[in-house]
Amino acid sequence: MNTEQYTREEDKEPMHHVIRLKRYEQPHEGYFEEFLREFQFRQRAELLKPSLSAMLMERLHSLVSEIRVPAMAYAGAAVLAIIAGTAIIRQEPQATSPRSYAASYSQTPVTIEKMQPVSLRIDTPPNASQHASQQFPPAFLLQARPATHESPLSF
């Protein structure tokens, strides 16, 4: 804004003359040099301030070092882990095809090639029947007859 333009604005606004007197309110002499020094100091302090992640890593490192586990134990654990891992990887699967656990009901039929009549007759001595009839009533006595696979209609 050039001076002429600025003067025109001033003329339009009477309060402008009073308000602009505030520009005389200035900080004490040497303030801006102090300000720069303070700014530089704060910037350096910020650079030195460790980040949260760096602090966490440091804490973790110190915690691990406090445990004092010998280096050989770490090496042994590492070797064991490698062996176990290799064994698991090399283990071949039992069957490549999917296993079926469905129950099978297919069963070969039982065939009887030649049926033989089975005699259920009980040979008893002659006096034995007499003895039996003496012991049991006649209704309970089965007649000894050969069993056949004939149809019941043959009766």
Partner: peptide, 18 residues
């Protein structure tokens, strides 16, 4: 918390007028 005005204000015509 105001800064003291610069002493030059006293010779400013606007200040004198105000």
């Amino acid at each position: 918390s105001l800064n003291d005005p610069d002493s030059r204000i006293e010779s400013d015509p606007d200040f004198i007028a105000a």
